[in-house]
Design a protein around this nucleic acid. Structure first.
Lengths: 218, 218
DNA sequence: AGGAAGCTGACAGCAGCCTGAAATCGGACC
DNA sequence: GGTCCGATTTCAGGCTGCTGTCAGCTTCCT
């Protein structure tokens, strides 16, 4: 896997580069946004690790440019602890995940692997459960051959449940997927969405484990 | 996982407690250091979330006491935005991580999970005992290849028994896992749950050590 | 045998969940 | 900006089955 690292701090940058390289991946390390732009327009990367505090421009701009150009490369952003607002903005601008500085290098590796796996290795399969067919990539659902329209939030809940198919997923987990890093929701939103999914996909699609969470049968 | 939350702010405390609980963990919420001390000397926690701005003494003292007593329980401290010095002092005093107020609840969850994972190192294995398979993380149980549904409380008891597999676990221990500190139960609830587990998982799964407690064979 | 400890079926109560409906949000379009 | 409309979030009332309790029984030990 080839990773583009955009980080202006020399010490941290070198540490990250060495750590990723030691995991057997190729790393291009850019310290300025313009260099990164050039690299991105020349090469194809499977993952971008982007520091949002760069000296020569806002890293967010680069992210937005990528998404505006329909470049789907997975991007993980890094910010300082107290920059919650920037983090949220980053996720809304199309980042796939984030890391808060200072972070563990091993934790970073785990995130990298997770994001890469999520976006490339598994190209979101078509799932069939009884009479239900779900095309996660194309966001198309069918029940008994009839097309059913799901909303954005409903897909999020569904994806969370299916990514742990057979396991019991807690409401907190689902909530975290729904409201990644923005304002907290203080109501039974998850219950409502489960209810909607059941109405659309069938009552037995999701089972409730009282006090534990929800589960989609294997 | 059982978490001790030490936070004097009523609103924030309640919000944190509910959020952790919604992820399926047990939470004891103390608002004063003395209560927290008592709880820590009585129960075993897998994680402590400690506010450093408490009215009746410095939270740092509690942290130092814990480390002086060689208590390795992971501690995450929370401080206000501008208390950089205190934060550093906290980390030097043995804190595992810190959160800057105000923080996102979902971010807190992520930190909790990260710290807990880092310090436990064994991410809830799949246990096999004879014909029984228990997936603690996914909360899925099988007996002779057939799926068995366990309730929330039953998992708690099971987890307690398995975390000391081969050893004899006292009823008091199990009771402490089941019920929050202070909320005592006056009945044979533990016996009832052992009975229910036996009915679902098989009679010989748990053996009774009269006058001592219960035991799961190695 | 007698007593202490443990087991388990039954059941009321209530925490947790469901869901229809109302309020609010947010994007599209003029 | 203003208006519309569907999506999202909140709320409240109703329902369900988990939970704690107890009583009567069994098992173990002296």
């Amino acid at each position: 896997m080839r990773v583009l690292l955009i980080e202006d701090d020399h010490v941290l940058g070198a540490a990250i580069r060495d750590h990723i390289a030691s995991n057997g991946h190729g790393v291009d390390w850019m310290q300025r946004l313009d260099d990164a732009r050039l690299a991105l327009s020349t090469m194809t990367y499977e993952l971008v690790l982007l520091d949002l505090n760069l000296p020569d421009g806002r890293g967010l701009d680069l992210l937005r440019e990528l998404r505006a150009a329909r470049n789907p490369v997975p991007v993980i952003i890094t910010t300082a602890q107290d920059q919650v607002a920037i983090r949220i903005e980053g996720l809304n601008s199309g980042a796939d995940d984030y890391l808060v500085k200072p972070f563990d290098l091993s934790e970073m590796s785990a995130r990298l692997a997770a994001v890469a796996r999520r976006s490339s290795a598994n190209p979101l399969p078509v799932v069939t459960i009884g009479p239900i067919t779900l095309d996660l990539a194309r966001k198309v659902a069918m029940v008994d051959g009839k097309s059913v329209v799901l909303t954005a939030r409903e897909w999020v809940v569904l994806q969370r449940l299916l990514s742990h198919r057979g396991a019991i997923v807690t409401k907190g987990d689902i909530e975290n997927s729904l409201y990644a890093f923005g304002a907290e929701v203080e109501s039974n939103a998850v219950e409502v969405y489960v209810s909607r999914l059941r109405k659309k996909l069938g009552r037995d699609f999701v089972s409730t484990a009282r006090g534990l969470g929800y589960q989609v049968a294997t």
